[in-house]
Simulated assay, not measured.
Amino acid sequence: MNQVRHLHTLGPTGTNLESAAHMWLDRRRLTDDGSVMLHSSLESAMETAPRTGEHALVACAVYPYLHTLVFENLLACRMIDTFLAPTHAMVLAAGPDAPPEPHTVSTHPAPASLVPQGSERHLVNSNSQAAIDCAAGKTEGCITTIVAARAHGLRIVRDFGPVPMVYTIHQVLEAAR
């Protein structure tokens, strides 16, 4: 664990996982020596992270495919740490011209149950991507973080608050033989 300096996780900027990665580096006083790299998916992060032992993947316990990610990469990664921390406040947000209850909602699969009943779900790779798609008019609303909603000028329809979350750190190594 003490050789990990570079964290790979889900982007674009504004995700709970990005925040957790910075938190992990801060807690280990590695903010000057470490880095956080954002990827379009955790799977692409796992594929591209150098196998030097200095790189790790940051995931969360509610990631719908965490079990697949772990077991498909069993020989090349190992879970070295976990920690509990709140997410950013999770919100249902909408564009300025959207109806009070959006009919179409972008969401990552993990918080998809927060989409209002009767709204059509559009699955995306991250909470931040949901906000980007909503701001671009691809959907009327999104389930996202308050950070991403504000960054994209979205109106908060409903604030679900922060969610206590377990984050996992997976060191990436050369595959064992």
Rank of each mutant, 00 (worst) to 15 (best):
A175W: 02
H108M: 04
H55N: 13
H88T: 02
V70E: 14
H108N: 01
L69N: 05
G95Y: 12
D81K: 10
E18V: 00
I156V: 08
L154A: 02
P50L: 06
G161H: 06
A98H: 12
A136H: 08
N125I: 03
K138N: 10
G11E: 00
G141I: 09
G11Q: 00
E174F: 03
T48Y: 08
P86F: 09
L69A: 08
H122W: 10
N16K: 00
T144V: 03
A61D: 15
T104L: 04
R158G: 06
A59W: 05
T9S: 00
R155I: 13
T168F: 08
T87V: 04
G53D: 11
Y65N: 08
E43Y: 10
L7W: 02
L10N: 00
R51Y: 03
A175L: 01
P164N: 08
V36S: 00
H103Y: 11
T145C: 03
H67G: 15
H22L: 08
T31M: 14
S44A: 05
L17K: 00
F83R: 11
V4E: 06
F83I: 11
L69D: 03
A175E: 14
H103R: 15
T31D: 03
T87D: 02
M23H: 11
V58K: 01
G137M: 07
H122M: 13
P64G: 05
H170M: 13
A94T: 09
G34P: 05
C60G: 04
A76I: 07
A151M: 12
L57N: 01
R177E: 15
P86L: 06
T82R: 15
V91N: 09
R177T: 14
A175F: 03
H88S: 06
H22Y: 14
G14R: 00
G137Y: 08
M1W: 09
S126D: 00
A112N: 04
L75Q: 15
G137D: 03
M79A: 15
R150P: 00
P109R: 03
S128A: 15
H122S: 12
C134N: 03
D26K: 10
T139I: 09
S44V: 12
I143A: 03
S35H: 02
R27Y: 14
P116H: 13
V36G: 00
D33A: 12
H88V: 01
R51E: 09
A135I: 07
Q129N: 02
E47D: 13
T13Q: 01
I169G: 08
R28D: 08
T82F: 11
E140F: 11
A93S: 08
L57P: 04
D81N: 14
T104D: 05
L92E: 11
E18D: 00
H6R: 11
Q171F: 06
G11C: 01
L69M: 13
T13L: 02
P111S: 01
G34M: 07
H103L: 12
S126K: 00
G14M: 01
T48L: 09
Q171S: 12
H108R: 01
Q171G: 11
D97I: 07
M79Q: 15
A61H: 14
W24K: 04
R28H: 15
G34K: 05
I132G: 02
V91D: 06
N2M: 13
G34C: 07
D81V: 10
Q129R: 03
T104A: 02
S40E: 09
R51D: 04
A56L: 04
S40D: 09
H39N: 03
P102F: 09
A175K: 13
R121V: 12
V157F: 09
